[in-house]
Amino acid sequence: MVRRSFTAVLEKNSTFTEAFQTEPYETAWASEARWFVRVQEMSGTGARLRATAQISPDGLFWCDEGTAALEMTGVGLSSQALREFGHWLRLRVELSGEAPKVKVTIYLALKE
């Protein structure tokens, strides 16, 4: 049997002006995960996006996973790989700078 895999698109061309978290996503079956954050637009003086992986035992209560956050200051694609993350994943995203505004697509690529 080849290894099972699945890509979830958790945000599609979504525009944000303040901090947010992606929806909880169940990952118990997967041993590998890779976040992809695609910034399609970014505006605001000194705008910066900072995405931190979070884990949870139940989809209700969350803590940081511990890997260094992804930081992006402009349009582009960035990625982060995780292992041993347990059964739930989400991204905690913070925006900084003056009147920051971003349009993003966020993927979670999972593999057994």
């Binding site: 979830a8 599609k12 996503y25 139940d58 209700l60």
Partner: peptide
Amino acid sequence: LRDMRPAQLSNCTFF
């Protein structure tokens, strides 16, 4: 129809 969410494989875990 822009945000119908990806399905998940759940082991039905509760708090």
